[in-house]
Nucleic acid binder design. Structure first.
Lengths: 161, 161
DNA sequence: GCTTGCGTTCGAGCGCGCTCGAACTCCTAG
DNA sequence: CTAGGAGTTCGAGCGCGCTCGAACGCAAGC
């Protein structure tokens, strides 16, 4: 499993936090990406834990703009990476590509669209919250079933093949 | 929005619970379905918040067996409903149809396959836990962004259009 | 000069999980 | 007798989100 990508690092960081999340803590989690030198497509892909194919696809459908170097190769600068981090977070929490295209279109239109973007985010926040509840329920159901099968519901089954 | 289906009820029940989850509480959550009379396909569909088309599809691919009444119509008895509840919970938490087919095949083979089923459940439990972490992170990121856009991060945006 | 490797563009293809439409059957109410 | 509505089977189709392959470009190293 890739353990060097941003999501893995953020998840690890999340484990260290158990108190209520202060703004700084969230910021630390969200902003795992320090300003960095431009990268090649494979570097960006590794960082984001996705394939170069997918990165090109995202660019093609207008989710992100990427510059080129002297020989025509993509060059992912800090801004592109930041946007991609955001996009993958939203994707992982179930936002549809179509909605991301909409959001990005708004973002590119400037500050006038902030209220509308805010609406989209608020809606998505509710979606995530609902998912969290459903997942919690599924976890309970799974653990319940595990218990009836005589399994122990320990911290993790890490270490299995 | 359908508010009569099992998942909606379970989610509502989940809101009432805030202490640590005892076995009974989990049981109450998981076993929302009391033993019930056989239902028609539309009744089952409403209960499970899915379409009759999907129910037939699940049967067709071997996920569940359903009896017929005198006139050849499907009749969903308590056992079929229980299985479907389980299946939808697993689906909602991201288990692939393929894996559910595998699981069901094992279940139909009898008690000898309990250990293997247990393994699958343990693995899925870990998957759910990872998803919970990722979602939590996405939620933090979303709320952070909402804050930077000047939105308040209240309990919910319920009431919006 | 030639191979190797990493990148490019383009369009097509694929796996998943439904979703639908057509043609038919059955029961009930008017 | 008829019309309506809910069910049936079957195969085909679809939207999503990638994923891939073919043909090509460019720069470095032997």
């Amino acid at each position: 499993m890739a353990t060097d990508d941003l999501m893995s690092k953020a998840l690890a960081a999340l484990d260290e936090v158990d108190g209520p999340m202060s703004v700084e803590v969230i910021h630390r989690l969200v902003d795992v990406s320090a300003a960095t030198d431009p990268m090649t497509i494979t570097e960006a892909a590794d960082l984001l834990d996705m394939s170069p194919h997918t990165l090109r696809y995202y660019e093609r459908i207008g989710l992100v703009e990427v510059g080129r170097d002297a020989s025509g190769h993509r060059s992912y600068d800090a801004e592109a990476v930041r946007r991609l981090v955001f996009l993958t977070r939203m994707r992982l929490s179930g936002m549809a590509i179509r909605d991301l295209q909409h959001y990005v279109r708004l973002a590119d239109e400037g500050d006038d669209t902030v209220p509308e973007r805010l609406d989209l985010l608020l809606e998505h926040r509710d979606t995530i919250r609902r998912q969290l509840k459903e997942l919690t329920l599924s976890l309970a159901a799974t653990e319940y079933k595990i218990a009836t099968y005589g399994g122990h519901t320990g911290p993790s089954s890490v270490g299995k093949a």
